[in-house]
Nucleic acid binder design. Structure first.
Lengths: 190, 190
DNA sequence: TGAATAACCAAGCAAGCGCTAGTGTGAATG
DNA sequence: CATTCACACTAGCGCTTGCTTGGTTATTCA
């Protein structure tokens, strides 16, 4: 649960867990599957995590934190115009979903599996990330780049982006950046 | 598995199963939970369904079939203009998700849990539904109502709509029709 | 009235689940 | 040199899972 408790070993195990959670889903991933993937026996897992829930919490914290950091960096490094910022956010979102196709996906699709305590503990991370989105979308709305209700627009955009996990083929001809640009192009008033 | 095997009793049980699958997810729903909800003992369940997988298949078939029928009826009964048809499809989609907030949600979010045989058997239903969408979207593209790649546009729209399940509050002030109209308004060129 | 059929129940099995207890390492620390 | 510590192992406990079996009740129809 603690952010401090992040030995290199634990971090590596978290990375492997994320991969399995994406492939199989949290519920279908057994501690024995996790252990095998990590090259240890199932009992040894509980030296690093107090229970299976804590593994999920670690993965989701990693994924959300990662998304937040990358998104912040992206909009800092891009031109301050609303369109560029919107594009940067969309690209950053898909980058965390596909370039390292693991923890952020788990954060989005398995959040409900967190117990209430862990969910409360991590919700500020998710809120910060969504606040970043609302900020960028507000800029685009004020510039007349897009139109609609700020709440609904951000939800629709995030929905369109998140759902790509279900159909996008990373081995296909399109890059994640292509997707981001297409989405921004689709919603922009002309 | 069979479409013919649909006694009234089985249909009612399928409806109850859908409700639990939405609340808990397929994996976390045990046959004992299902039986209790249905007012029978867990063993009796297997008189109606050969195994748990078949319950899921029945729910998903119901949900997808329902969505297809309602969508077809909607675009038949609305004006033949591209914008009206697009709006009708979006409304129909959300209607099957929320008005009867069960089977279609399961079809969307638990499809991966189908075994390959059932998935293959049901994929034509899903394909027919998506083909309907592509047809309507093609009309909107040709009319210059929206712009972009037909494949990507349909994926983005469906993603935005599907993700509403995660955040929409049916008890709030907005109706599903409001959502549909807002989404169409957001993507339309002005 | 009696046979057929559909719907159900009580009991429980085999397998798999998360997790624990107790022990053995080799490397770092005093 | 003794102690500690991080990390791993073996073995299995207690429980839940999906599902089966063998038999009972309710309903339908000849």
């Amino acid at each position: 649960m603690n952010v401090m408790n992040e030995s290199p070993r634990r971090k590596e195990l978290t990375r492997l867990a994320a991969q399995l959670f994406v492939q199989e889903g949290f519920d279908r991933t057994t501690v024995r599957m996790l252990a095998q993937e990590m090259g240890i026996k199932s009992g040894s897992l509980f030296h690093h995590f107090k229970d299976k829930q804590e593994i999920l919490a670690a993965v989701i914290e990693e994924g959300t934190h990662n998304a937040l950091v990358i998104a912040r960096r992206s909009i800092e490094q891009c031109p301050a115009e609303p369109e560029a910022r919107l594009r940067a956010m969309a690209r950053a979102h898909l980058e965390t979903l596909f370039a390292d196709r693991n923890a952020h996906v788990v954060a989005l699709f398995e959040w409900r599996r967190l117990d209430p305590a862990a969910s409360a503990h991590l919700s500020h991370l998710r809120d910060a990330y969504e606040a970043l989105w609302v900020e960028v979308i507000d800029g685009a709305l004020q510039a007349g780049l897009i139109h609609g209700d700020r709440f609904l627009v951000s939800r629709f955009i995030l929905g369109a982006l998140n759902w790509t996990v279900r159909w996008y083929d990373p081995n296909g001809s399109r890059t994640p950046d292509d997707l981001a640009d297409e989405l921004v192009g689709m919603i922009m008033a002309r």
